[in-house]
Design a protein around this nucleic acid. Structure first.
Lengths: 232, 232
DNA sequence: ACCTGAACACCGTTCAAGT
DNA sequence: ACCTGAACACCGTTCAAGT
């Protein structure tokens, strides 16, 4: 749990630290160096303080990164265009907007978790649920379908954006895919009949299309289940 | 890249180390203590050697954990029942079998990546692709649909099984969900209309059902797209 | 209430030396 | 070719002391 944070510090420094300031600086560092490159010493230096000071505002590194990811998610949600009449279309835009935001902050993708606990993850799930509720689906299915969509957004985004969560921000996605395609090409077609046939697709596929392909499959499935009900 | 590993060591110890032995021991430690609990010192002790020895067999900790995860995936694939005539049903069984295997090794879930590079991940993707090819879907869509299913399996499994990838193996899934449900209950219904309505569902939902709900949505979507084509 | 910075208890990884 | 184990260069985190 967070420590209490008051107003302007009584006897402290002018540019007072706060949880927001710490998290904001962490986002910058995370963008620059990835999760492993974020260090309490480095962050402290950036904020002209000692490492110990940061622990007054966040419990530990896990919490710090989680808060930073939730911060990114917050920006994403703020960008989501207002919903129209078509609830399914609304779900699609919501999902894609979140994907795009995470794509700009690869480290965050694997940190937005799906049984939501932080403020913006909660908001995301609530928005999904509200849209699902307007879909015509019977009420007893609202929860499971919302969860499925929510899992899809966070889980698949993470897979696409930060596969293995280990690749340093140095290696570009293109390099990674190109190297993988090379490896596929070298395989024996007898063992991997499908793989060896589709190498070309891997080389020039688009990440974002990949995300929407599965999403549309899911939403089509949803429509197919809803059909007999009312429209909006 | 792996170092060469020969036969029985020329002048070495009787219980020779090998990449397989190292990875096998790593899987055990990972099951016991999670990724953070796996240490080169601890692993070396387990194998009665020094930490340096391990670096002859694996490049670093990332590779070690990746290989361990691929090992788990290999066991999963060996358990998959032989495919029947129904390709879509085959995809479903494959997905669920992998989910179940990962569920028994939570640390592995986030390490099985979806543009496949390691042996068993390659096999998984090839199996998915071969099943998709038998689905009646036009050939130009095989790759994107296979990728979508593959992303769903690995991504959503990781979200469900190891949310936040941070929770220590100590905290049980039930505790985590219960605590999250408590938090949801405390929220203001004005801000979170959907969330506050569905707390009960979170408390007693089943992870596996959750996985299959989304999967079935996806496969239904697939069927809907395939319908006009030939059946098997 | 909040900040400072030294110190603790670890890590992953390297490498000269052995067999 | 493979193993040994000490040493290096870090980490996250704590905490007594300050303001």
């Amino acid at each position: 749990m967070p420590r209490t944070r008051g107003r302007a510090p009584a006897g402290g420094r002018a540019d007072a630290l706060s949880r927001e300031v710490v998290v904001g600086a962490a986002v910058e560092l995370l963008d620059e160096h990835g999760e492993r490159g974020l260090t309490f010493r480095l962050l402290a230096e950036r904020l002209s303080t000692g490492p110990g000071a940061l622990y007054w505002h966040v419990a530990n590194k896990d919490e710090l990164v989680a808060l930073a990811a939730d911060h990114v998610l917050g920006h994403a949600l703020a960008e989501v265009p207002p919903p129209t009449d078509d609830a399914v279309a609304g779900l699609r835009t919501l999902a894609v907007t979140v994907f795009d935001a995470l794509d700009r902050h690869a480290w965050a993708a694997s940190r937005v978790t799906a049984p939501a606990t932080l403020a913006n993850a909660l908001r995301l799930f609530d928005r999904i649920g509200s849209l699902v509720a307007r879909t015509g689906l019977p009420a007893e299915r609202h929860f499971e379908v919302s969860t499925a969509i929510s899992y899809y957004i966070t889980g698949v985004s993470a897979q696409i954006i930060a596969p293995g969560l280990t690749v340093s921000p140095a290696t570009s996605r293109e390099d990674f895919l190109a190297r993988t395609a090379d490896r596929w090409e070298a395989l024996d077609p007898a063992d991997y009949p499908f793989l060896t046939r589709t190498t070309a697709n891997l080389r020039d596929h688009d990440d974002r299309d990949q995300f929407t392909t599965g999403l549309d499959l899911l939403l089509t499935g949803l429509n197919a289940t809803t059909e007999p009900g009312r429209p909006a």
